[in-house]
């Protein structure tokens, strides 16, 4: 079978299965959380590179809310001054 068709089928099937699993998980496994964490997660890069000392952005957001960590430790979002100020106001509330 022509290689383009074969690779297209393999990838679409794979993406379909994974997409279905993810969408099922999003609808069924919703866990209620502190609303601020949701907003924080949208502001943080979400790259989970671990450079801030905590393992993932979600973990870093928890620490930010508890006040254990400081936004300056997240090196990627340092680039964006207005984002940093937005995060700081969010935490002040």
């Amino acid at each position: 079978m022509n290689i383009i068709l074969l690779s297209a089928i393999v990838m679409v099937v794979l993406a379909g299965i994974l997409g279905a699993i993810l969408s099922f998980a999003y609808s069924k496994l919703k866990v209620e959380e502190d609303p601020r964490k949701e907003q924080l997660l949208n502001l943080l890069p979400g790259v989970n590179c671990g450079a801030c000392g905590s393992a993932s952005c979600a973990d870093f957001a928890d620490k930010l809310i508890k006040g254990e960590a400081d936004i300056s430790k997240c090196r990627i979002s340092l680039r964006d001054e207005n984002k940093v100020t937005k995060i700081k106001d969010l935490l002040k509330e």
Binding site: A55, S56, D62
Partner: peptide, 10 residues
Amino acid sequence: GIYLPLITTN
């Protein structure tokens, strides 16, 4: 569990 997302960019 908090370390799991780390896998994708490791």
